[in-house]
């Protein structure tokens, strides 16, 4: 079980967190001011003999990411990149990483990769599955997202669900790089609320019962070990219900406070 405890291998400025035996979180931080921050992270899957990166992160963190991915892969770099969507903080390092590690495979869910600036990408289909570097990956229709071509990415082997812009958190300065198992007092409702209010603007129109029903159904149908957000602190399975309760509270508050 120790491999699933979310071990912080380097506390401080460069936290790298092992979520499972072969999935790690490379947490990058962006300060928002006022003691609040947002993660702009990537995740690394060490498959049999290949390395898969989930999203490429922001160019803002490029040097740090190159250094840390190199270190995490013992200099091998990456063999495949699976993109949740083409928003710049998720896709901003593709050309730089390719210059460094060669023309690795890119998997993207866009209906038309050229329009998203990814003419060389292998297309994934939302609702479909692909084998990527020997791993079975499912591409799920995301209830919490903004861009049309966003997909949530489920790695069957590790049971980690990578949720792109969903499940974010405006963490405090002392919560950088901490998973739900390491947050001293767990998640705070306020920071779940502010993240979703400021990121998924359409939630002001949401029917909370419908949205939360779909989300809970997704998790009931799928065995998830970790929920891995790009902009939040990873959520271990045993903390998911708590997060969902706070999320529902947040969505209801957004709807209530933004009267039309």
């Amino acid at each position: 079980m120790s491999e699933d405890r979310g071990t912080v291998t380097a506390l401080g400025a460069d936290p790298e967190v092992a979520l499972t035996r072969d999935v790690s979180w490379i947490a990058e931080n962006y300060p928002l001011g006022g003691g609040r921050n947002v993660h702009v992270s990537v995740f690394l899957i060490r498959a049999e003999d290949q390395n898969i990166l989930i999203d490429s992160g922001s160019f803002y963190h490029r040097e740090s990411l190159v250094r840390r991915i190199s270190r995490a892969t013992a200099g091998e770099g990456i063999h495949s990149l699976v993109l949740s969507h083409s928003d710049y903080p998720h896709s901003g390092n593709i050309p730089a990483f390719r210059r460094r590690w060669g023309d690795f495979e890119i998997v993207a869910s866009s209906g038309e990769p050229e329009i998203q600036g990814l003419p060389y990408a292998r297309r994934s289909r939302i609702g479909g599955s692909l084998e990527v570097a020997g791993r079975e990956i499912d591409f799920l229709d995301p209830p919490l997202a903004d861009r049309s071509h966003t997909s949530w990415i489920y790695d069957r082997a590790s049971r980690v669900l990578f949720v792109a812009d969903g499940f974010g958190y405006h963490h405090a300065d002392d919560e950088i790089g901490l998973t739900s198992r390491q947050l001293p007092n767990g998640f705070r409702s306020e920071e779940i609320y502010t993240f979703h209010r400021d990121t998924l603007i359409w939630l002001r129109y949401a029917d909370p019962a419908v949205l939360m029903g779909v989300l809970r159904e997704m998790f009931a149908e799928r065995d998830v070990s970790w929920v891995a957000p790009i902009h939040g602190n990873p959520i271990a399975a045993e903390h998911l219900d708590d997060y969902l309760e706070r999320l529902e509270e947040g969505v209801r508050r957004i709807v209530r406070e933004q009267a039309i």
Binding site: S148, W202, Y205, A206, D207, L211, V214, V255
Partner: peptide, 21 residues
């Protein structure tokens, strides 16, 4: 239904009211 796929999760009357607005 493709670009604003999130409309599947909305309160219809509330969203229609916004269009009027």
């Amino acid at each position: 239904g493709r670009v604003m796929f999130w409309m599947r999760y909305v309160d219809v009357a509330r969203t229609q009211k916004e269009i009027d607005l």
